[in-house]
Design a protein around this nucleic acid. Structure first.
Lengths: 207, 207
DNA sequence: GGGAATATTCCC
DNA sequence: GGGAATATTCCC
């Protein structure tokens, strides 16, 4: 019975409001990823044991000193995974840059020690909604032309480009497969001819 | 000697491809979500303790008997969360229907007991890429309109279609080449193995 | 690095 | 139920 209620509550919670309604929906509360990454650095500050991850000296970026421990110990406490590469994928999504070839240091202009309030200004890089070259995009205001058809056509074009891309990928794969086949063929041939020779010799010798 | 050859052959074969190349790239391996959900039901079958989740009597759908336990115990072993509502969100994404108001029963035509092989036919509902009704798509031929841009775009589109057609033709040719290669490979193999046998016999006889 | 598919969350 | 944002994975 209690379990039943708990269930209802869980499902029911979906109906409340976030409270952001009246505000500009953009750039208000920082993305969870940013908050977690920031917090995880704060937590590190408190410790004085071996550093796994920390702000850099100037507080203008952070360094993952031990990626292995970071992945295994830190990540799963903040995220739903323990993959360093997924973490980096997120950093890239939010526009962080790797700033050293010697260590795992990442920076973002708006991600600095002591500046939790700036996190809200960091936004995801948007995935370009279309692939059309710029010159097709710029001159789209004097369109008295029915934009629906144009959109339609753009859509078609997008599809074509997609298919095209896939076909090229397929072609590459097929070509590679052929190369493999050819290589194998050569080996087989060599093998066969070698066999024939050996046999001849053996037979000759035995005769 | 024979072993050596066998080894070489094996090495050559080791580099082969996934094999899906020539096939339609869609609808092959089932989405992880579907596999996990299916497996989680199989696992349930084995037990004869209190049922948390199971196939329905006919095997045409499944029932979550205890959502609370399911969320707390089952979900986190298969997914990165323990929210019943996230699970249901996924079910909806893949087109499952809740089929009873009295219990948490879900069905999908292609999701049935003993039919793991059908899972590949279940696809995500696509988020409609555009909002245009179908009737807008058909009427795109009587465009005498001559905005240079439109022409430009149409030209591009034409080129794309052309390239597309050629790529498909190429694909077919490549596929045929591969088939030939494969056939030859088989022949060579057969030839080689026959040779090996014959040799053995000859040598034996001569000894 | 980043595109794109899938998963998870949040909200309507 | 489902749209849409964010997260995670997979792949180039």
């Amino acid at each position: 019975m209690a379990e039943n209620n708990a269930l209802e509550l869980n499902l029911g919670l979906g109906n409340n409001f976030g409270g952001h309604v009246g505000q500009s929906p953009r750039q208000r509360c920082p993305a969870p990823f940013l908050l977690k990454t920031y917090d995880l650095l704060e937590e590190g500050e408190a410790e004085n044991s071996t550093k796994i991850v920390s702000w850099n000296e100037e507080g203008t970026g952070f360094v993952v000193w031990s990626p292995a421990e970071f992945s295994e110990l830190t990540l799963p406490r903040y995220f739903k995974h323990n993959n360093f590469s997924s973490f980096i994928r997120q950093l890239n999504t939010y526009g962080f840059k790797k700033t050293s070839s010697k260590r795992w240091e990442f920076k973002h202009e708006k991600f600095q020690r002591g500046c939790r309030h700036m996190l809200g200004e960091i936004t995801r890089k948007k995935c370009e909604p279309s692939v059309f070259p710029a010159y097709l995009k710029s001159s789209s205001e004097e369109n008295a032309t029915s934009s629906t058809e144009e959109n339609n056509q753009q859509q078609q074009q997008q599809q074509l480009m997609e298919e095209n891309k896939n076909l090229k990928k397929e072609r590459l794969e097929l070509q590679m497969q052929i190369d493999e086949c050819k290589a194998l063929e050569m080996k087989l041939m060599a093998c066969l001819s070698q066999y024939m020779e050996t046999t001849q010799n053996k037979v000759r010798r035995l005769c």
